[in-house]
Every structure is written in structure tokens, then in C-alpha cells.
Design a protein around this nucleic acid. Structure first.
Lengths: 106, 106
DNA sequence: CCGCTTCTTCGAGTTCCATGGAAATAGGCT
DNA sequence: AGCCTATTTCCATGGAACTCGAAGAAGCGG
């Protein structure tokens, strides 16, 4: 992953509201969460949430799938894995033992 | 690590210039890097670099140590490790079995 | 077709961020 | 003291981000 791309993803996660959104989606698992439920859970204006979701989708951390009138949002795990891989390789040379971090390999 | 703290650190890393700075410091290893050398390597105004360093130091990702007139900067590995730990736990990245986790609640 | 639900886009206001030149500070050398 | 290097703080500025209400679009169901 390029540095610019990684920075864009980190920036997307670097907003408390968006981090809450992403965490909620991860906790929702593979079923995902509709935008409306996400809004009720986090408690912000629908338009604000839409903007934040747009940012998360733009950088690839979140994906959407239409189910009739509702839009299901899901966390994109492989992208997050690659982001962690970037941090582990590029920014964690010796002082950071790999621990149980996944491989990048892409 | 709390969500707000994690978000602040992600935001700090979410700027391409600051990510370059951090990466350069990680690559420098335990010896660290003086501010001036960092500036020459990255190629931005000294004041701009100082601002970015201040942000990285504020969130705990970087530390400084005075050696005569020069300030040695070092990456703070444990903080990065905790940040990666937060992402792995709270935004669980592996297989991610969700459900029995508490609700967001601001 | 019309309304209902769901979500996004528009418009606008406020706040925050990135940048760098100039001036101030810190520390040490002669 | 006086000077030199290294780095920060002060200040200004353009631009981007966050927020929300209002209005628009997308997709059913009757």
C-alpha cells in the first residue's frame, strides 16, 4: 500500500465519529448494518452520517449493498488488514514485534 | 486505549507529511533523528515540520530528547503497539466474531 | 400513479488544519 | 558578552472539514 493511500485511510479513521461508525460496522459482522440503524445507534444527523460514510467508502474501508430501500453497510476487513500490514512493515521495524498481526502479501 | 485517544493518534498519522515523518523516525531506529536532518530529508519548512512534530508528540507517538543544541526525535513504539492493539481488539480485524460486545454509547 | 421510507445531495455557517516567513528562544562556543 | 546554530512560537492566510436542516432522488407497496 502506498503511503498516500495509507494516510487517507488513517485520516478516515482519525475522526471519533467515523471511528465509532467503523467499530459499529465491525461489531455488526458480516450482516452489516443499515444506514438508518447506524444513525440511531450513533446519534448524529442523517446527512452528517452520510458524509462520514462517503469518506469511509471512498478510502475503501466500508462497502455498501442495496437491499430494497435500505443500504447495508459493511466493514471491509481486507483493507483494514492491509492497512495494519502497512503500519507493521513500514512503521514498525524492530521496536514493534509482529505479534499476531496478519501478513500483507499484496 | 479509549476511542478518542485512538482517533487522535490515527488522525496524527493520517497526514501524508506526518506519516512520512513518523516512518523516517521508525527507520532511524533507536538512534532517532535530529529535527534538522528530518527537515532536510522530507523537504518542508522548518516551522511546518515543527508543527507536525508537535502534533505527533502531543498524541504520544513521538518523543524528543535534547542533545546540546539539537533535538533528537524518536518514534514511541509502545504507543504504536497499543494503537495497533486497539484496532485489532475494538475493530477486530481477524475473523471477527462479533455479537456479545457492548454498545457504542458515545 | 402516489405516497411512504430510506438515504443522499445542496447550501451555509462555523471551526479547524496546513503552510511558511519572521521573530523569539535555547544552548553552547570563543 | 557576543555570536552562531538549531528549533520553536507568532502570525496570517487559503482552504478544507464538520455539522445540520431542507430539499432531492431511489426504490418499494398499494
Amino acid at each position: 500500500m502506498e503511503l498516500e493511500e495509507a494516510a487517507a485511510r488513517l485520516e478516515a479513521l482519525g475522526n471519533p465519529t467515523r471511528l465509532k461508525v467503523y467499530r459499529a460496522l465491525v461489531r455488526a459482522g458480516d450482516d452489516g448494518l443499515p444506514v438508518g440503524r447506524l444513525q440511531a445507534r450513533i446519534g448524529i444527523a442523517a446527512s452528517t452520517l452520510s458524509h462520514h460514510l462517503h469518506k469511509l467508502i471512498t478510502v475503501g474501508l466500508v462497502s455498501q449493498e442495496r437491499q430494497a430501500t435500505t443500504l447495508i453497510c459493511r466493514a471491509n476487513y481486507p483493507v483494514m488488514r492491509r492497512l495494519l500490514g502497512f503500519l507493521a512493515e513500514e512503521c514498525c521495524v524492530e521496536g514493534c514485534p509482529p505479534q499476531d498481526l496478519p501478513d500483507e502479501a499484496a
